[in-house]
Design a protein around this nucleic acid. Sequence first.
DNA 1: CCCTATTCGTCATGGCGGAAAACAAATTAG
DNA 2: CTAATTTGTTTTCCGCCATGACGAATAGGG
Lengths: 397, 397
Amino acid sequence: MSHGWAPPAHTGRAASQQGMRRQNLALVMTTVAAHGPISRAAVADRTGLTRAAVSSLVEELNSAGLLAELAAAPSGRVGRPGRALALSAQGPAGLGLEVGVGHLGACVVDLRGEVRVWRQVAASNRNRPPSEVLAELAEVSQRAVHEAQDMRLRPIAAVLAVPGLVGDVPGTVGRAPNLGWRDVAASELWSQELPLEVENEANLGALAELWQGAAATDFIHVSAAAGIGAALVVGGRLFRGARGFAGELGHMPVRPDGPACACGAHGCLEQYAGEEAVLRQAGLVRTEDAVHRLADRARDGDRRVLAALERAGRALGTTLAGAVNLVDPAAVVLGGAYAELGDWLLPVIRQELTARTLRPWQPEALLVSALGRRGPLLGAGMAAIRRIVEDPAVLRS
Amino acid sequence: MSHGWAPPAHTGRAASQQGMRRQNLALVMTTVAAHGPISRAAVADRTGLTRAAVSSLVEELNSAGLLAELAAAPSGRVGRPGRALALSAQGPAGLGLEVGVGHLGACVVDLRGEVRVWRQVAASNRNRPPSEVLAELAEVSQRAVHEAQDMRLRPIAAVLAVPGLVGDVPGTVGRAPNLGWRDVAASELWSQELPLEVENEANLGALAELWQGAAATDFIHVSAAAGIGAALVVGGRLFRGARGFAGELGHMPVRPDGPACACGAHGCLEQYAGEEAVLRQAGLVRTEDAVHRLADRARDGDRRVLAALERAGRALGTTLAGAVNLVDPAAVVLGGAYAELGDWLLPVIRQELTARTLRPWQPEALLVSALGRRGPLLGAGMAAIRRIVEDPAVLRS
DNA sequence: CCCTATTCGTCATGGCGGAAAACAAATTAG
DNA sequence: CTAATTTGTTTTCCGCCATGACGAATAGGG
């Protein structure tokens, strides 16, 4: 009647003692990262490892320069005081890079997740040759790296945030319409020593949100630039879908027979809540700082702008309600350009969410990103160093 | 500027040698399950374990009665022939149970994933006291268990498929409107020895689809009964969302200002593609076998029925396109009542998917479940025994 | 001041489990 | 019948964590 189990569910990997060590090193590392200065004994309690094992693991992490012992603080409790462990403020660091339409950015984040260097410069990158853009970025980056080195920080990996899609080949930009890029092998053009990884800016914004602790471990992060993108974070990880295309919120249907969209369909969300559509409704022309002007006029009470924002918010809310019904996230975060327009969008979206989600929806579960435009670059820097926290053994090679 | 890493990303568990053994036992088990009769050496090649380690692991699984050695088949290749390992056709088995509106079911699935006992009886369970229903189910179940025992099968766990929502407390049915159940503690009413777990029938249908190998490891399984539910399978696992409510496809908005829905919103998918809506459009009254009658009339070319199905398919397609844009599954599977109506729904849905998905959509990635109504019960049986395959160490306790 | 209770970190021992390599067994090719 | 080849087991070894004991560093009480 049946034919047995289907082939593989992605066959796991063999567990070895090296793997065990590796996992426990990571466990200690993440525990220290998450629970501030903490003693070995407390790590042991929290992880289930023995104190002896923790000692050995800490010793290894310590001599690799990943952990540091802080000065002892009097605890007031009886017994020998523990020695406070914390992630090292020196040593390995992550280099975050960003190519925006109107700016370039570089930042350095240390193991603790703290931003130590932050540089952004204005630049007109629209339709500029990628090699030229990356060359200028390299200059900005090098200054940032030098600054970091003065603080005894040693960047070990770079992540580049781009307003576009990552290509099938790692390290390439598949398409970035706003930059005019198409199939750009960024990591090859990148002449620096550091390994470079490319990631979509919206995804990195979502990761920044995750690691800065504003939202839960399961949320939808919506951000708008030219298009509308959503990043799904599930169980503390980016959810990319089977082919890596998950999160195309902008082309969810709002009205099946609505206005034609560039994608070929009709009534996509972008036709209601996309930058171009909103500006058109508001009677504004599209410029680099259009979002600011929208917000200004809304503050001034401009009827047409307010109506445009309400219309956008309603469409966005409807679509998000659908997404919430389907994915059941713990929160929805508005980032990117939407963050600045939160005052006017939030109430309408809340209304729609409340009305259209089958399960009761807590109003406070819809929130505006506190990171704003800094999200992508911050996320890039954090992502670059986060690997070390989540798997310190990669440095042992 | 920043405040370091956010608290936990669900802190992992400490790796111990026992855990290592456990993981490798599972690895051998799943490898044998997935790749048919296979020799120790081939398992070693495939998993990366050494032959010695595999031997030791197989020895343990063997003496626990989980693996069996088949008669040697001449391979024709040079060298000592391998001894073919396969999952045991005896020993531990899973008991699948189902309470439907019009029937009760029980089945027994062995370690290989093969159905060995299959029993379904008609019953009118609508608004019947849960204790009475479960008592009758227990009888059916016991006969099935006895039959299984005659085949040297020993059911070790039961999973119950219900057309409703699982409650917060494991083992309880939160709501099953079609049965008239509300907060029923099924596992307490279940007087049998076996541990009982309760799961939504649509989810189990999706798991059956997964394990029977029709679809990929990432897909959306749509099924309709009274409501429209979707089960998301991601990386070979059920995706439940933050609160366990993921998959409410029926209340995704199709037209923001469409007909009012029982959920309080307007224009939900259920108002277009739900059983009641389709029947109303088709001019049929609602009965137990309404789906059959729909299919019959459609086959006869009934204009009104065909129009109703087209309308439903179009709405379903629009919504699924949105879901695909958001989640990017490798496939979409139509199950439940939709499976029988596939001939008429499929073309329209394909059309919408092709038109509305941003990424190119392969027509063959939309398919109809071959399991039909058997899915939920089959999935229940398979789920009950699948745990042993995925973690054989649980039997060691 | 000294002694005890308490907690922390380390050290020594042991056992478990996989890796590596040698070996025995079973087949094909010639 | 021998050589070659592949399989499965045996043996030895090593890494890693658990266990338990011990020294270290504190607070509290007499």
